[in-house]
Design a protein around this nucleic acid. Structure first.
Length: 906
DNA sequence: ATAGGGTTAG
C-alpha cells in the first residue's frame, strides 16, 4: 500500500498509512522503511525522517544497503550532508546506487568538489560509474567552472557507450565553464542532434555573450527547417535584444508563431523584453497585455523594461497595478523598480520599498544592497547611502560605482574622488563603470588636471575602447574647456560613435560658445544616418538661438515635428526661446499659446523674450496671466520681468514689482534682482536713489551691481558716483581693465584730460584682457562668423570698399566718429580705420553685399554694441533703406530709416 | 537546456 502511494507521489498519504501501521503495532520491515523514507524525502519533513532513522537503528537495519541509501538520499535532500556521510560510511556493501546518492547530494551542495572526489573514490573501490553517476556529477563540474574537470569527464564519456543525450550534458557543462569552443566542438561532431542539443548550444552561446553565434544558430534552424523549441527561441530572443537587432527579433517572433510557442509565457516574456530593448515599447506593452495569466516574472520584466527605457511614470504605474492584483514583489521586482525611485527622486516610494524588503524575506545581498545605495544617493540622502554602504554584508566594485556615481552626479565631486581613491585602497580594481562614474566628478569640480589623470588610468587599464568610457572622456574634456582634446578623441578614426557621442560633442561645442561647430556636428550626424533624439533636439535648439539663425532653427523645428518631441515641455521651452532669440517673437507667442503642458520655465522663457525685445507692457501682462493661471512664480520670473521693465522704460512698475517680491510672493530678492533695479533706476537718471538702494542692500553688492551703477554714471556723465562705483569695482575685480576704461570715458566726457591720460597709462601698463567681440549673420541657411579685426575674409576688400562708400555718405549727413571706445594710443584718423574692425560692421557689410536690396538683415553680437556702432547702424539703415536687426548681449535693436527701437543707445 | 536584476551621457 505504502509503495503504491510513493510510486504515484502521494507522499502524505504514504506517511499517513505508515503512522496507522505503527498505531496497530505492525512491525515494519526493510522494504517499509525504504518506501517511507522516499515519501519523507518528497515532503522534506526533517523531524519525521529523524524519527524513522531512530526506528531503523532500533531494528538494526541501518547498515542495509537499501535502507542506508534511502537515509543518505533523505539527509542529502534536507541539506544534512554530515548525517548523510555518517550513514554512508556505516554501509559495508556499497552499490552504485548508494554512491550515486552521495554524488547527487554533494553536487547540489556548496562543496561540489566533494562530489568529484566521491566519483573517483567509487572507481577506486571497484564500482563502475553508470549513466546516473555521470548525470549527477555534471552540475558539480559546472559549478566548479573548471575546464580541466570538463576534459576529464569528457574523456570518461567517450570511453563508454552512453546514449546520445549525454553529449547534450557535455555541451551544457562546457558552456557553463566558459569553454564555448569545446561545447561547439561536441555539438558539431555529434550525431543525432535533437531539440535539446540546439537549445543547449544556443543558451551556451548567450551565456558566454557570443550573441552573433547564437543568432547564426537560429538562422541554421530556419535554413534547415528544424522545429524551433522554447529554449532556442528564448536564447535567440535574448541575443537579438542584447544586440538591439529589431529585424532579427521580428523574424524570431514570426518563427515562434509558426512553431506555436509564442504565447507560452516562457517565450512571451523575453519576446516582450526584446521589443522593449529595441525601442518598440508599444509592441512590448501589447504583448504583455495579451499574456493571460501573468506571473511575477512577467510583471518584473515589464516594469524593468519601462524603467530602463526611461518611462518612469509608466514603470511606477505598472508596479502599482501589480500590487493591486495582489502579487508580491520579489527580489528581482525590487531591483527593477528601485532605479525608478532614484531616477525620479521618489524617496517615499524608495523608503517604503526598503521597508517592504525588511519585512519580507528579501535580504541585503550585493545586488539589492547596490540598488538601495544607488537609490538613496540619487535622492541625495548621502549619509543614509553611505551608512548603508558601510554595513552591507557584501559589496563589489559595482557597489562602489553606485556611490561614486551618486556623489559625482549631484555635485559632490570631492567626495566622489575620495571614494575613488578609497576603492583602490580597499583592494578593488576600478572597472570601466568606475571611470564613467568618476569623470563627471572632474567636470563638476572643473578639474581638467584630475580628469587627464583619470584618462591616464583608463589607458593603463585598457578601458579606452569602451564606448561609455570614451563618451565620458569626451564629455569631460569638452566641459572642462579643452574642446580641442574632445574633438581629437571624437574624430579618432577607430571610434564608432553612438547617438550619445553625438549629443556630447554637440553639447560640448555649445558649452564653449561654439554654436557654429555644434550645428555642423548636427549635420554631420545626420549625414551618417543617425537620428536626433530628445537630448539632441534640446542641445541643438540653443545653437540656432545663440546665432539667431532662424532658417537653421526652423529646420530643427521640422525635426521636432518629425520625431514627435513637440509635446515635450523641454523641447517646447527651447523652441519658444529659439524663436524669441531669432527675432520672431510672433512665432514664440504662437508656440507658447498652443503648448499643453507649460511649466514655470515656459512662462519665464516667454517673459525673457518680451524683455529682450523691450516689450515691458507685454511682459507685465503675461506676468498677470501667469498668476491667474496659478503657475508657480520663481526667482527667475522676476529677473525677466524686471529686465523687461528696464528695457521698456517702466520705472514705476519696476519699483512696484521689486517691492512686491518678498511681501506678496515670498521670494527673497537676490543679487541679480538688485542689479536689475540699479540698472533700471540708473537709466532713469535716479542716480542718488540707485546709490542709496545699493547701500541699503541686505548683502554685499557684487561687480554686476556696481557695474550697473558705473554704466549709469557714464550715461548721465555723473563723475562723482562713477568714481564711487569704480572704487568698489577695482577692489572686487582688480585685474579687469574694462572698469578703468569706463572711468576714463567719464573723465573724457567731462573734459578732465589730465585724468584721462593718467588712466590710459595705467590701463596700457596692466594689459587689456577682454573677450573678443564676434558677430554672426545667417545668409541662406549658412551662418557666417566675424571676429573683431578679422581681415582674412575672402570678401574683405569688397567689404572695406563698401564701408568707405557708406562712411563718405554718412559724413555728408553730418556724422562724426565717436572714438571714445577705442583705446589704442593712435591718431584719430587711424582710429576711424579701427572702427571698421568692429565685428558687427564686418557682418553688416558682408550681409549688404550678399543679400538682395531691401531685404532685412539680422546680426547677432556676443558683446554689447558700442555707442559709435549704434549711431552708425542707424545711419546705414537710412542710407541703404534696410531694416537691420541686431541682437547683442542685452537685447534686440531694430534699426529702420535712421532710428532705433530702443530710442537711444542705452 | 529556458524568461525578470544592481553602477554608466543630458
Amino acid at each position: 500500500m505504502i509503495r503504491g502511494y510513493t510510486r504515484t507521489n502521494q507522499n502524505r498519504e504514504a506517511l499517513f498509512m505508515y503512522q496507522k501501521m505503527r498505531e496497530k503495532c505492525v512491525q515494519p520491515d526493510k522494504y517499509t522503511f525504504t518506501f517511507v523514507l522516499k515519501a519523507c524525502t518528497g515532503v522534506l519533513n526533517l523531524e519525521m525522517g529523524v524519527g524513522i532513522h531512530e526506528e531503523i537503528v532500533k531494528n538494526g537495519l541501518e547498515s542495509d544497503v537499501f535502507v542506508g541509501t534511502g537515509l543518505v538520499d533523505f539527509y542529502c535532500k534536507v541539506g544534512r550532508l554530515d548525517n548523510a556521510k555518517e550513514v554512508f560510511e556505516k554501509i559495508p556493501e556499497l552499490d552504485v546506487v548508494a554512491w550515486n546518492a552521495m554524488i547527487a547530494g554533494f553536487s547540489q551542495s556548496v562543496e561540489p568538489l566533494e562530489a568529484l572526489r566521491i566519483f573517483y573514490k567509487m572507481q577506486l573501490a571497484g564500482i563502475e560509474p553508470n549513466l546516473v553517476s555521470l548525470l549527477n556529477l555534471l552540475p558539480a563540474v559546472s559549478k566548479l567552472s573548471s575546464v580541466h574537470c570538463c576534459r576529464a569527464i569528457h574523456g570518461f564519456v567517450i570511453r563508454r557507450r552512453f546514449p546520445h543525450f549525454v553529449l547534450n550534458g557535455l555541451i551544457d557543462m562546457y558552456s557553463k565553464c566558459g569553454d564555448v569552443d569545446s561545447a561547439l566542438l561536441v555539438f558539431n561532431r555529434m550525431f543525432g542532434r535533437d531539440g535539446v542539443s540546439w537549445g543547449t548550444m544556443m543558451a551556451g552561446f548567450v551565456r558566454n555573450s557570443c550573441l552573433v553565434e547564437a543568432l547564426e544558430l537560429f538562422d541554421c534552424i530556419k535554413r534547415e527547417k528544424l522545429d524551433l523549441n522554447q529554449v532556442a527561441a528564448v536564447s535567440a530572443l535574448l541575443a537579438a535584444a542584447e544586440t538591439r537587432d529589431l529585424e532579427k527579433g521580428r523574424e524570431i517572433h514570426e518563427y515562434s508563431v509558426r512553431a506555436g510557442i509564442d504565447s507560452d509565457i516562457l517565450v512571451a516574456t523575453p519576446l516582450m523584453t526584446m521589443y522593449a530593448k529595441c525601442g518598440e515599447l508599444e509592441k512590448a506593452k501589447q504583448i504583455f497585455e495579451d499574456i493571460p495569466r501573468k506571473d511575477i516574472v512577467v510583471w518584473s520584466a515589464v516594469i524593468a523594461a519601462f524603467v530602463q527605457a526611461g518611462c518612469l511614470k509608466e514603470g511606477l504605474s505598472l508596479f502599482r497595478q501589480m500590487l493591486r492584483e495582489n502579487l508580491k514583489p520579489n527580489r528581482v521586482t525590487v531591483l527593477g523598480i528601485l532605479p525608478a525611485c532614484g531616477e525620479s527622486s521618489d524617496i517615499n516610494l524608495g523608503k517604503s520599498i526598503h521597508c517592504y524588503m525588511l519585512k519580507s524575506d528579501i535580504g541585503l545581498d550585493v545586488s539589492t544592497g547596490t540598488a538601495l545605495v544607488a537609490m538613496y544617493a540619487k535622492c541625495r540622502l548621502f549619509s543614509v547611502a553611505h551608512a548603508l554602504f558601510s554595513r552591507l554584508p557584501q559589496e563589489d566594485v559595482i557597489t562602489w560605482n553606485a556611490l561614486i556615481n551618486g556623489y559625482a552626479q549631484f555635485g559632490e565631486g570631492r567626495r566622489a574622488m575620495e571614494m575613488f581613491h578609497q576603492l583602490r585602497a580597499a583592494g578593488y580594481y576600478p572597472d570601466s563603470g568606475t571611470m564613467v562614474g568618476v569623470l563627471p566628478a572632474c567636470v563638476t569640480m572643473n578639474e581638467l588636471e584630475q580628469g587627464t589623470c583619470i584618462h591616464g588610468q583608463i589607458l593603463k587599464f585598457g578601458f579606452e575602447a569602451d564606448i561609455h568610457v570614451k563618451n565620458a572622456l569626451i564629455n569631460m574634456y569638452a566641459k572642462c574647456g579643452s574642446v580641442t582634446t574632445a574633438e581629437y578623441l571624437f574624430n579618432e578614426p577607430e571610434f564608432t560613435k553612438d547617438e550619445i557621442s553625438w549629443n556630447i560633442i554637440i553639447a560640448g561645442y555649445m558649452q564653449n560658445g561654439r554654436a557654429k561647430e555644434a550645428i555642423s556636428a548636427f549635420h554631420q550626424m545626420r549625414s551618417e544616418g543617425v537620428w536626433p533624439n530628445l537630448v539632441t533636439i534640446v542641445s541643438i535648439l540653443p545653437a540656432a538661438a545663440f546665432l539667431a539663425a532662424l532658417k537653421q532653427g526652423m529646420a530643427f523645428h521640422a525635426y521636432v515635428v518629425h520625431t514627435g518631441f513637440g509635446s515635450n515641455v523641454l523641447v517646447g521651452n527651447s523652441l519658444v526661446d529659439m524663436y524669441a532669440k531669432c527675432g520672431r517673437l510672433d512665432y514664440s507667442e504662437e508656440y507658447f499659446d498652443q503648448m499643453k503642458n507649460k511649466d514655470t520655465v515656459s512662462w519665464n522663457v516667454m517673459l525673457s523674450g518680451y524683455a529682450m525685445h523691450g516689450l515691458g507692457k507685454a511682459a507685465m501682462a503675461l506676468f498677470l496671466r501667469m498668476q491667474e493661471t496659478c503657475v508657480e512664480v520663481d526667482s527667475v520670473s522676476f529677473v525677466s520681468l524686471l529686465s523687461a521693465c528696464r528695457h521698456g522704460g517702466l520705472i514705476e512698475e519696476g519699483r512696484k514689482v521689486f517691492h512686491s517680491m518678498n511681501p506678496k510672493h515670498k521670494i527673497e530678492p537676490k543679487l541679480e534682482h538688485y542689479a536689475c533695479m540699479v540698472d533700471l533706476l540708473g537709466r532713469a537718471g535716479e542716480m542718488d536713489e540707485a546709490l542709496n538702494f545699493i547701500q541699503n542692500m541686505p548683502m554685499a553688492a557684487d561687480a554686476v551691481v556696481w557695474g550697473a551703477l558705473l554704466g549709469a554714471s557714464r550715461m548721465h556723465s555723473n563723475v562723482q558716483i562713477g568714481e564711487i562705483a569704480l572704487g568698489h569695482l577695482v577692489s572686487l575685480e582688480p585685474q579687469n581693465a574694462a572698469h578703468h576704461v569706463v572711468l576714463s570715458n567719464i573723465y573724457a566726457q567731462s573734459g578732465r584730460w589730465g585724468d584721462v591720460r593718467k588712466m590710459r597709462k595705467s590701463i596700457s601698463s596692466m594689459g587689456l584682457k577682454k573677450i573678443p567681440g564676434c558677430s554672426w549673420v545667417e545668409i541662406r541657411k549658412e551662418v557666417h562668423a566675424f571676429k573683431v579685426g578679422d581681415q582674412t575674409h575672402p570678401q574683405f576688400d569688397k567689404m572695406r570698399q563698401l564701408w568707405n562708400d557708406l562712411h563718405e555718405k554718412m559724413e555728408r549727413i553730418g556724422y562724426v566718429a565717436d572714438t571714445s571706445c577705442v583705446l589704442h594710443n593712435v591718431e584719430e584718423e587711424e582710429k576711424e580705420l579701427f572702427l571698421f574692425s568692429h565685428s558687427e560692421r564686418l557682418a553688416i557689410t558682408f550681409a549688404l553685399l550678399n543679400t538682395e536690396p531691401g531685404m532685412p538683415i539680422n546680426i547677432v553680437k556676443n558683446l554689447r554694441v558700442c555707442l559709435d556702432c549704434h549711431i552708425t547702424i542707424k545711419l546705414i539703415s537710412q542710407i541703404t533703406d534696410r531694416k537691420i536687426i541686431v541682437r547683442d548681449a542685452s537685447r534686440f535693436h531694430h534699426f529702420e530709416k535712421g532710428t532705433c527701437s530702443c530710442n537711444d543707445y542705452w
